[in-house]
Simulated scan of single mutants.
Amino acid sequence: MKTFYIVRHCQANGQSEDASLTPQGIAQSHELAQFFSGIHLNQIISSPYKRAIQTTEPLAHVKQLEVQIDQRLSERVLSSKPMDDWYEKLKLSFSDLHMTCEGGESSQEAMNRIVEALYEQIKLGKDHTLFATHGNIMSLLLKHADPTIGIKEWEQLSNPDVYVLQYFRPDHVEIERIWHK
């Protein structure tokens, strides 16, 4: 069995790649470090987005681990253009995994890249890895493990949020939400 922690970033000042954590988000990042204080971690891998990196910094400091960056943990881009009906498109993208919007990435494409990042760590024999990422891409990784996950579960994610994935074999992955704030 391999154990992986999937962390959604703390509260941030927006959605751009360079959006930083709010003062509340910074406090949350320290709460996360405390939450993980008794949990063994071998490595921390983060999205390159500033808010994800900032979420992991206090934890990395406490655990004396370097934060590794992986582009595959970046948030999914639904569309390159603003859309008034973005929520309806996002909702549809959970049932039609191949749907794409202008300049965007389908759910299947996004899922494939984050699953690839996870399976790369499994193949390398890595265990007790923490992935810091974003809400939509996180929910797609969870959907890969449990196809019943959809828009409702995405809506219920908090900032931050933490799930543990326990990998027993390719056809048996258990997921559990362990952040209850």
Rank of each mutant, 00 (worst) to 15 (best):
H128V: 00
E31T: 10
W86C: 04
I69F: 10
T56Y: 11
Q34H: 14
I151P: 08
E176W: 10
E66N: 15
C10K: 06
L118H: 05
E109T: 10
F94A: 01
H9C: 11
E66D: 15
I151H: 01
R177C: 01
Y87T: 13
M83P: 02
S139Y: 12
C101N: 13
L97W: 09
I175Q: 04
Q15A: 12
A33C: 02
E155W: 13
M1S: 12
M99I: 10
L73I: 13
E116C: 12
I45S: 08
S107F: 07
S79T: 06
R169A: 14
I53M: 12
L142P: 05
A33K: 02
A132Y: 01
A12S: 11
R113H: 08
Q28F: 07
G103E: 13
Q156R: 12
L41A: 04
F168P: 05
I26N: 10
E174W: 09
E109Y: 02
H9A: 12
K2S: 12
N136R: 11
I6G: 05
I137M: 00
S16K: 12
H40C: 08
R8E: 03
T100C: 07
P48R: 03
R76I: 13
W86S: 03
S79W: 01
I69G: 02
Y5T: 00
I45Y: 02
P170M: 00
P58D: 10
V7N: 04
L97G: 01
G25P: 04
T55V: 12
R72K: 13
Y163S: 09
W154A: 00
F168W: 14
Q64G: 03
V67Y: 08
I45Q: 09
R8S: 00
K50S: 15
P147S: 04
A52K: 03
N112W: 04
E57F: 03
Q108E: 14
F94M: 02
M1Q: 09
G14F: 12
G125V: 09
Q11A: 09
Y163C: 03
D146P: 03
Y5W: 11
E176C: 12
M99E: 13
Q15V: 14
Y163L: 10
F4M: 06
Q71F: 14
N136I: 15
F94K: 07
A12P: 01
V77G: 07
L92N: 09
Y49I: 12
I69P: 11
I44A: 00
T56D: 11
Q121T: 05
V62W: 14
L157R: 02
L73K: 06
Q15Y: 14
L165R: 06
A117P: 07
H172D: 14
Y5L: 05
R169K: 15
K126I: 05
Q121V: 04
R51D: 10
H40N: 09
V62F: 15
H9R: 03
M1C: 00
Q54W: 03
K2L: 11
D84W: 11
S107K: 00
P23M: 07
R76Y: 11
E75H: 06
W154H: 04
E176Q: 15
A52Q: 09
P160W: 00
S16W: 06
